[in-house]
Design a protein around this nucleic acid. Structure first.
Lengths: 217, 217
DNA sequence: CAGTCATGTGACTGATCGGTCATATTTTTT
DNA sequence: AAAAAATATGACCGATCAGTCACATGACTG
C-alpha cells in the first residue's frame, strides 16, 4: 500500500501520477518500466515519489490491485441476463464482458496481461492468487457444466481450463489486431469501438470452436 | 551473422560461448540478458566478445536462427508416417513432434518462445517471418482440411490459426508444469522424459478438444 | 629474426537505473 | 509569531549495462 502522504495528495495530482504509472507499466515490463521516467513526466521530484511509495514494487503491486479491482467491478456491473442459461451461453457472456473490458480499459488490460506473463524479479501473493483464482473459477465452471450435461463427460478438465485461461487473456489482443484497432482511437472512443466493429462476430465464431470443435460432423 | 573471427575459434570454445548465451537468453528476456554475465561465465574478455559479434542484437538473432534451424531439422527428421492421413491425425503428429522437441531442447524452446512473446527494442525480419510463417502454415493446413472435408466448412480460419499458433507455443510449458517436470532432470535425461510421463495422454486429450469441441453430443 | 596481421584484454566511457538524504519549503499547530 | 510537523527537492550514490579502445600477446610470413 502507498503511504498516507500519497492519499493526502490533491485528487488531480494523484490521478496524474497513477495514470502516468499505468502508461509506463503497460508499455514496459516490470524491469524496464522506469520510475525516473514517471516522475519526469509527472513533473515531480524523485524524492517526492519515494514519499508516496516505499519502492518500485509497491507502486507496481498497487497498480495491479487497482486493475484487478476495476475489472472485477466491470464484470460485476455486467450481470448475466439469465442465471439458468447453459454453460456455453454463460461462457459467451463471460468472454464478451472480458472483451468489452479490454476495449474500454486497454491500458489496464495490458497491465494485467503483463502481470500474468512477464518475468518478475520477485514472487507475489496477489498475482499468484489472481492466476490461481482464474483457474479455479474456470475449473468450477467446467465441472458444473459437465454435471449439467452441457459439456462432454470425458472432457479433460485441466486442458480446458488451460485453454480458457490462455484465451481469456489473449483474445482481446488478437481481436484488436485483427480489426486493426488504432490504440489512439480506442483511448478516445473507448468501449464504443466494440459496437462499431465485428468484435462480437469474431469472438462468437471463436467460441463455436470451443463448443463444437473444428472437425466436420 | 557473427564475424569470421568467431568461426575461426576452436570448436569447443565456440560451443561454450553459444551454450552460455543460450542459457542467458533463455533465462532472461532480451533487455535483461547480460553480455557482461555471458563473458564472465565464459571466462573471456568483454573485448573478445566484440571481436566475435558486432553487438548484442547480432548474438541474439544468431541464437534465434540457430534455434529455428534446430527445430526445423528436428521436425524434418520426424517424418509423418502416412502422407494420406487426415487433417487431425496430421495435427496430432505435428503437436507431438513439437512437444518432443520441447522436451529434448527446453532451452531452445524457451528462446523461441521469448522471441515470439517478449518485447524487443528493435523489429526484425527473421522473427517476423518466423511468426508469419507459422500462421501461414496453419492457414494452409486448415484450408486444405476444409477442402478435404475434415474440418467444418463454416470454421473461422483466422480464429483457428490463432488458437494453433498460441497453443503450439504454449503447450510444452503447460504440460511440463502439469507433469512437474524438473528442469534439471530434463536437461539430463532429455527427450526420454517424454516417454516416461503422461505427456502423450495429455496432448491427445487436448487435441480432442480441438477436434470434437467441449460440448456434449 | 623482423615484420605483419589476427586475436585477446580489461580499464574505461557514458548512460540509466532504483533509491537516499540533507536541506528547503509549505502547512499546521501552539 | 514561533515552533513543529509534513512535504518537496534534486544532487548524489553505487550498481549495472552495452560498447570502445589503446595496448598486449600470439601466430604466421618473408
Amino acid at each position: 500500500m502507498p503511504k498516507q502522504t500519497f492519499f493526502n495528495l490533491p485528487e488531480e495530482k494523484r490521478q496524474t501520477i497513477i495514470n502516468l504509472a499505468i502508461d509506463e507499466f503497460a508499455d514496459n515490463d516490470y524491469q524496464n518500466a522506469s520510475i525516473s521516467r514517471i516522475v519526469a513526466r509527472a513533473g515531480i521530484a524523485k524524492g517526492s515519489f519515494y514519499q508516496y511509495f516505499a519502492d518500485k514494487k509497491e507502486l507496481y503491486l498497487y497498480l495491479i490491485e487497482l486493475a484487478l479491482q476495476e475489472k472485477a467491478q466491470f464484470l460485476q456491473y455486467t450481470p448475466p441476463p439469465d442465471p439458468q442459461m447453459g454453460t456455453f451461453a454463460y461462457l459467451r457472456w463471460l468472454f464478451e464482458a472480458g472483451l468489452r473490458f479490454s476495449f474500454s480499459q486497454p491500458k489496464l488490460t495490458r497491465l494485467t496481461y503483463r502481470a500474468f506473463f512477464d518475468d518478475l524479479p520477485f514472487s507475489n501473493e496477489t498475482i499468484a492468487q489472481a492466476q490461481a483464482g482464474s483457474s479455479q473459477f474456470f475449473t468450477q465452471l467446467i465441472q458444473q457444466g459437465m454435471e449439467q450435461g452441457d459439456l462432454r463427460a470425458d472432457l479433460d478438465v485441466d486442458s480446458a481450463v488451460f485453454l480458457f485461461d490462455l484465451v481469456f487473456m489473449e483474445l482481446g489482443n488478437h481481436i484488436m489486431q485483427r480489426l486493426n484497432v488504432d490504440p489512439a482511437e480506442l483511448a478516445e472512443k473507448g468501449a464504443q469501438v466494440f459496437e462499431e466493429t465485428a468484435a462480437a462476430e469474431i469472438y462468437n465464431r471463436f467460441m463455436d470452436i470451443f463448443e463444437f470443435g473444428m472437425g466436420a460432423k
